[in-house]
Amino acid sequence: MRRISFALAAAFCLLASAAFGGEAEIKAAQDAIDGQMKAFSRNDGVAAYSFAAPNIKRIFPTVETFMDMVTGGYGPVHRPRNYAFGKVQEMSATSIVQQVLIVGPDGKDYEAIYTLELQPDGTYRITGVSLRAAKSLST
């Protein structure tokens, strides 16, 4: 029942987020997040690192230091059992905040808030992630 509630809540949030403009930008930002999550699942640190924005690469200048940070502090993002996009907000013409609802490797629910910025090459890159345990979505 808990998984069904989680999936229904995620689907509702996704439908609600598509109701406003900038759908192409939102899709591009979500593709960056999805690409990084899939790279994590393949143990492809180089590909995962490629979705990080320059500000993140300045803090973590190598793939190894980046992956150490991810594996050490972002287990649910690194190894999700499942994830779905939730609420999204365009903060400006070049900045998007995207909620991602995650079932972690421990089976618990988490909420990740991603910030992304449009880069000069026209791609969205991840500028930060805030992770917290989610309040139960089941009734």
Rank of each mutant, 00 (worst) to 15 (best):
M1L: 07
R2F: 11
R3Q: 11
I4W: 12
I4N: 13
S5F: 15
F6P: 03
F6W: 13
L8R: 07
L8A: 12
L8F: 12
A9K: 13
A10T: 15
A10C: 07
C13F: 13
C13L: 11
C13T: 09
L14M: 13
L15Q: 08
A16K: 11
A19M: 08
F20M: 09
G21L: 09
G22E: 06
E23K: 10
A24C: 01
E25D: 10
E25I: 04
I26R: 07
I26M: 06
A28Q: 08
A28F: 04
A28G: 05
A28T: 03
A29H: 07
A29L: 07
Q30T: 01
Q30D: 01
I33A: 02
I33E: 02
G35T: 07
G35I: 03
Q36S: 05
M37K: 00
M37R: 01
K38A: 13
D44P: 02
G45W: 10
G45H: 05
V46H: 05
V46C: 05
A48S: 13
A48T: 09
S50P: 08
F51E: 05
F51H: 12
A52F: 06
A52D: 06
A53I: 09
A53F: 04
P54H: 12
P54M: 10
P54E: 15
I56G: 05
K57F: 05
R58G: 13
I59T: 11
I59Q: 13
F60A: 08
P61H: 09
P61M: 12
T62H: 14
T62Q: 11
V63P: 07
E64Q: 14
E64A: 15
T65D: 14
M67A: 05
M67C: 03
D68V: 08
D68I: 06
D68Q: 10
M69Y: 06
T71W: 02
G73V: 15
G73Y: 15
Y74P: 08
G75A: 10
G75V: 04
R79K: 02
R79W: 01
R81C: 00
R81V: 02
A84H: 02
A84M: 02
F85E: 00
F85C: 00
G86N: 01
K87M: 02
M91N: 01
A93W: 01
S95D: 03
Q98A: 04
V100H: 03
I102H: 03
V103D: 04
V103G: 03
G104E: 05
G104T: 10
P105C: 03
D106C: 05
G107K: 10
G107V: 06
K108A: 09
D109C: 02
D109T: 04
Y110H: 04
Y110F: 07
E111R: 12
E111A: 15
E111T: 15
A112K: 11
A112P: 12
T115I: 07
T115F: 14
L116Q: 03
Q119G: 06
P120E: 12
D121K: 06
D121Q: 09
G122L: 11
T123Y: 15
T123R: 12
Y124C: 06
R125I: 07
T127A: 15
T127E: 13
G128N: 14
G128I: 13
S130D: 13
S130R: 15
L131P: 04
R132G: 06
A133P: 12
A134M: 14
A134D: 10
K135H: 10
T139S: 14
